[in-house]
Design a binder for these strands. Structure first.
Length: 287
DNA sequence: AGGTCAACCTGAGCGC
DNA sequence: TGCGCTCAGGTTGACC
């Protein structure tokens, strides 16, 4: 499901029931996610208070009151849902009914907080993960030490991107998917950003010129901001924590639109495969 | 060193 | 209905 806008949407949805709240009960249903749960995950989480809930790249991070941080990744198909007694309008946001919550086939983790609310992690492909990492070891942790710049921060500018792409012989499409360059972009928003910046996905990263980089940086930021505002893109799996769909997919210019007209020049959108992933682009206006 | 690609899983959609 | 095939928003480790 998730790229940065979807993870941001989910994080914001979890905040009211997690931040400042304590876990009263935690249960894992099956341990064989691709990355197994840490030892006694439920026991270590129970009774802990979440001091701060935030996002880094495509990870949801919960800083706990005991010096550990809860790290959540949704993989390709992970969902988080929030349930409470009485359903809608509880807690100042829309939440789902409590009845039956956490009993689904792929509901892997059920977490109750003193909001009170029940949070369910569902992931049918099991590519997601939940870990506990000592907070003071986060920066050096394997998952985070190599991560690139946050695209929505002021740190990402033309100069930084230019130096990050310097000497890279891989296509720009693949370079932007590399989390060590920019952290949080995925297949959808890379395609969309390249279209907005009128850059061919096949162009070698090192050959993206200064003018193009100056278009690419705002294109990335704008497409992400618009998608966050729309609640992310719901293609197959993504839902907000209240079960509603994001609607940014209605705004795609090229992604998943093979054969449809390019909104700019009306040429047919092409689909190619790069590094094993679909790329959608307009061969006429992306150079 | 740096880049590509299969593998990890399940489910949905499509053609037959 | 059902089978077989392809594809899916991510990440990683094995391999050129």
């Amino acid at each position: 499901m998730p790229e940065l806008p979807e993870v941001e949407t989910v994080t914001m949805g979890l905040k009211p029931v997690m931040e400042g709240h304590r876990f009263t009960h935690v249960e894992t249903r099956r341990g064989d996610l691709r990355v197994p749960f840490p030892n006694d995950f439920a026991g270590r989480l129970t009774g802990r208070r979440v001091e701060k809930l935030w996002r880094r790249a495509k990870y949801i991070m919960g800083t706990l009151d005991d010096g550990e941080t809860l790290v959540i990744h949704l993989g390709m198909s992970g969902r988080m849902s929030v349930h409470a007694e009485g359903g809608q309008r509880t807690l100042g946001q829309y939440v789902q009914n409590l009845a039956g919550a956490g009993t689904g086939k792929h509901d892997h983790v059920v977490m109750d907080t003193d909001a009170p609310a029940r949070i369910v992690f569902n992931d049918h492909r099991r590519f997601g993960l939940m870990l506990l990492v000592p907070t003071d070891e986060l920066t050096g942790h394997k998952l985070f030490r190599g991560l690139g710049v946050e695209p929505l921060s002021d740190d990402l500018d033309a100069a930084l991107l230019k130096s990050a792409l310097k000497g890279k012989k891989t296509p720009i499409k693949s370079a932007l998917l590399d989390q060590r360059v920019i952290a949080g972009l995925g297949n959808i928003y890379v395609c969309e950003a390249l279209w907005r910046a009128r850059i061919s996905p096949k162009r070698l990263a090192a050959k993206v010129n200064t003018d193009q980089i100056k278009r690419l940086v705002p294109a990335i930021k704008q497409v992400l901001k618009e998608a966050v505002k729309a609640g992310g893109s719901s293609l197959r799996d993504h839902k907000r924590v209240d079960g509603e769909l994001g609607y940014f997919q209605k705004s795609f210019a090229v992604y998943d639109r093979e054969g449809a007209p390019c909104p700019r020049c009306k040429c047919k959108v092409k689909r190619i495969v790069q590094a094993g992933r679909s790329t959608f682009y307009c061969a006429k206006c992306q150079r």
